[in-house]
Design a protein around this nucleic acid. Structure first.
Length: 801
RNA sequence: GCCGGUGUGAUGGAAUGGUAGACGUGACGGACUCAAAAUCCGUUGAUGGCAACAUCGUGUGGGUUCGAGUCCCACCACCGGCACCA
């Protein structure tokens, strides 16, 4: 058969659509499978081969599940709020709505051309009013629950995008969107109290099936540490200086303290500080640095001693100086630390520079040369002296501090509350009204969605305020509580909002009474398998777990965790082995591949190129290899005739079914395809196969290359769709060959290969081996002292002499 | 610095502690062709040998084992994440 992929692919895509083949059923009596892929941001650049790889994994698994009889929900949608669209709108004057619709249309066409088996009746777009109505609804529920607050804080601000960014969006001191340097700015912003869920986000990881590296990244991100809070007395003042430490066992070794430059202590006691000018100057210096710069100057510690205030070490009674230094962050712990120079790298460097003395409290190092971080006997530490175990010493000290009322055990998290706002147009309006009398008042639920106003100039204001602030008709409103004149909040939500719950909307996307019907939620949740990129495992994945846990707490979702299982695909690199980018000119457009070679080739190649979870470079010539494979598949019907089994081929077929079935579950698509190629090689060599065998083979190939398989399936006289035919079972007994070739080793070295009956006894194997010429030669003049026989695997003869 | 991962032919990559290099690509030789492309057949880890065959070979050095790409210890290189987190 001529492999006319264009005609075939168009034909079957239409047939699938007409048959509603891949639409999930609302019938909850069947076993369900919910497979989710991260929905794309519909950028103007169109689809990228990376998108295809991200969806192809679960595409194969979803197709296999359907053939196994599951009710499969495999949806797609668009995460369409965001800055690139808005920036494009500012530049061109085209409304973001228009741009978004156009891009979504383009993505949809491209996705359909690849033949993905998405349920196109459930497409969602986060920028549609009937979607973001529910994003706002969840926000208000959080507001009601006290998880939303406003706070003036130093925020990460991108001067180019003119927006406040979360810590997650400003990693490395660069804006995640435009890559320019972040500066610190004091601003009144919205926060979500995600830290309240820190412990549960941590413990929930024990209940889900995520790869270890993803769990570890989340654990690091949450950054839980255990330690103690200690209140240091200040000499001649009633006040205390509260610190957090993970090493209360070293308290006797504290010889100074350090507070962050922004620490309120300085403002509070300005008049008692004799060098306030020097402190102010230092503080100003620090404010100019970006957080990035501040964390770069690791080696050279800077700081200024506070003259006029000293602290008292609560266990040794010693009077100790207090410094300000930017190596202490106001945003972690209490913004103040106790310094133990003998046993901490940073404190050591600081003490050396400022000539502060040290007290060794753990024996084992030479503190004249370097700090000692290890464990050892406690010395110079009063009641801790002689202890060797760090954990015991910590526990003992915490008991002591608690007993004396000078401190207590506690935990800290690196994770901070989520800065939840953008000063931009193209996002969900935050549904809050500011009333001079009532304060912050939520928009009533029955007034949702709070729609974005129509406007034409989307540029943010110079002061960094939202473009919405310019729309008087939007801003001026009545207080929902007292009816008086009030002003609307003009910030919008960050892009992460819509994606934090989209998987819930797919379950019941057209519901107007609730974000989804509780019965359907109960049936479909949790998502059985979620695939996406590694770049989303600390932000999107944590955010959406947080929202889900909240929704669980208020009783609107039935599970504590949203995703039962998570996997991640590896990048597709350019042919040059570099990350694909427009500037490098190494971008492969999936459309071109579909045009030139067909969707089935694209799909097979992307899954064949290497381990699904690893990065691999695109290879123009390897793609053609997959094309050859499918062309030969198209010719298979010409050698298939009759019913029943082909003697030399049937066991290979059963082995292939076993291999492919298992490999798909492990996302080892490359070896699954290799096994099918190997089967094809054998079939061609034998030159014949039966229609029964072809029927089996076409069905296991169908999830990978569905168009060509449908065509062959139809040619064979089948009336239904191959995509919905039963997944073939294999017969274990038929995977077994009568004889098996095993290696014969002498003293662990391969000497020969012998053919023996399957599962044969050691005696028989040994007899056959001893009759083998090569073995005879290798054994000449030696005595066998030991025989190791592993059935069907190996025979190893240990000899001496 | 901390956490996670990777290291195998020319190349992408295969190998539940049991015949290293499956499958694909490329290269080389041949068939077909006026020729090229496509297709088909064969060869393709290194070294030595006419050959049968032998020796070596999975980043480096040790170890465990009858047997190690796989397990353990130490090291090197690279990739990803976090990072003055007290």
């Amino acid at each position: 058969m001529k492999y006319d992929f264009r005609t075939i692919e168009e034909k079957w895509q239409k047939r699938w659509a007409d048959a509603h083949a891949f639409e999930a059923s609302t019938d909850t009596s069947k076993p369900k499978f919910y497979s989710l892929v991260e929905f794309p941001y519909p950028s103007g650049a169109g689809m990228h081969v990376g998108h295809i790889k991200a969806y192809s994994g679960l595409e194969v698994i979803s197709r296999k599940r359907r053939m196994q009889g599951y009710n499969v929900l495999f949806p797609i949608g668009f995460d369409a709020f965001g800055l690139p669209t808005e920036n494009y709108a500012i530049k061109t004057g085209i409304h973001p709505r228009t741009v978004t619709d156009r891009n979504i249309e383009k993505f949809t066409q491209q996705l359909k051309r690849v033949g993905f088996s998405f349920d196109w009746t459930r497409v969602i777009d986060t920028t549609q009013e009937d979607y973001y109505k529910w994003t706002q609804w969840i926000f208000l529920k959080m507001f009601d629950a006290g998880l939303v607050f406003r706070s003036t804080a130093l925020v990460n601000y991108c001067p180019s995008c003119k927006v406040v960014l979360s810590n997650e969006d400003s990693q490395g001191g660069k804006c995640d969107i435009c890559k320019s340097d972040i500066i610190q700015k004091s601003k009144d912003v919205w926060y979500l109290r995600i830290t309240e869920y820190a412990d549960r986000l941590l413990s929930g990881l024990d209940t889900v099936d995520y790869p270890l590296n993803i769990k570890q990244q989340q654990i690091n991100w949450i950054g839980k540490s255990r330690g103690a809070f200690v209140n240091f007395s200040l000499k001649n003042l009633d006040d205390k200086l509260r610190i957090y430490t993970t090493r209360p066992d070293t308290l006797f070794g504290v010889t100074f303290m350090v507070i962050a430059p922004e620490h309120p202590l300085i403002e509070k006691y300005r008049s008692s500080i004799s060098n306030i000018d020097a402190l102010d100057a230092y503080k100003n210096e620090c404010a100019k640095k970006t957080e990035f710069e501040r964390t770069q100057l690791v080696k050279d510690k800077t700081g200024v001693k506070i003259e006029g205030i000293t602290a008292i070490n609560p266990v040794s009674g010693r009077e100790i100086p207090i410094y300000i230094s930017d190596y202490v962050m106001m945003s972690y712990g209490t913004g103040a630390i106790m310094a133990v120079p003998a046993h901490d790298d940073r404190d050591y460097a600081f003490a050396k520079k400022f000539g502060i003395d040290m007290v060794e409290v753990i024996r084992g190092g030479d503190i004249s040369r370097e700090p000692y971080i290890g464990e050892g006997e406690m010395i110079n530490s009063g009641f801790l002296n002689g202890m060797h175990n760090k954990a015991d010493a910590i526990a003992r000290m915490i008991d002591y501090l608690t007993e004396k009322g000078i401190g207590e055990g506690g935990v800290q998290y690196k994770m901070k509350d989520w800065a939840f706002n953008r000063q931009r147009y193209w996002g969900e309006p935050i549904p809050i009204v500011h009333c001079p009398k009532c304060g912050m008042v939520p928009v009533p639920y029955d007034e949702l969605p709070l729609k974005l106003p129509e406007m034409t100039n989307f540029a943010p204001g110079e002061g960094g305020e939202s473009p919405l602030a310019k729309v008087e008709s939007f801003v001026n409103c009545k207080c929902p509580r007292c009816g008086g004149a009030a002003r609307r909040e003009t910030d919008t939500m960050p892009q992460w909002a819509g994606s934090s719950w989209y998987y819930l909307r797919y379950i019941d996307p057209h519901n107007t009474n609730a974000f989804a019907d509780p019965e359907q939620l109960k049936y479909w949740l949790p998502v059985d398998w979620y695939n996406g990129g590694m770049e989303h495992v600390t932000r999107h994945l944590i955010y959406s777990r947080f929202w889900h846990k909240f929704l669980y707490d208020i009783g609107v979702v039935p599970t504590d965790e949203p995703y039962a299982k998570r996997s991640a695909q590896g990048l597709i690199l350019g042919p040059d082995g570099e990350k694909m980018s427009k500037s490098k000119g190494n971008v492969v457009d999936p459309n071109d591949v579909v045009d030139e070679l067909g969707a089935d080739v694209l799909r097979v190649y992307i899954l064949f190129m290497g381990d699904y979870g690893s990065a691999a470079p695109w290879s123009e010539s390897s793609v053609r290899g997959c094309k050859r494979f499918l062309e030969r598949i198209a010719d298979l019907p010409s050698i298939a005739k009759g019913r029943g089994e082909t003697p030399k081929l049937n066991s290979k077929l059963h082995k292939t079914v076993r291999k492919v079935s298992g490999d798909i579950e492990d996302m080892k698509f490359n070896t699954a395809i290799a096994a099918m190629m190997s089967f094809l090689n054998d079939a061609e060599e034998i030159g014949t196969m039966t229609l029964d065998e072809l029927s089996v083979f076409v069905r296991i190939l169908c999830p990978f290359a569905p168009h060509i398989c449908e065509e062959i399936w139809e040619q064979m006289g089948n009336t239904g769709l191959c995509s919905l035919a039963a997944w073939p079972e294999f017969d274990e007994s038929k995977t077994v060959d009568e004889t098996v070739d095993i290696g014969v080793q002498i003293n662990g070295k391969m000497r020969s290969v012998i053919s023996i009956p399957f599962n044969c006894e050691a005696d028989q194997a040994l007899a056959i081996a001893k009759a083998d010429e090569k073995v005879i030669a290798a054994l000449a003049g030696k005595t066998i002292v030991k025989e190791i026989y592993v059935p069907n695997k190996i025979l190893n003869l240990v000899v001496k002499g």
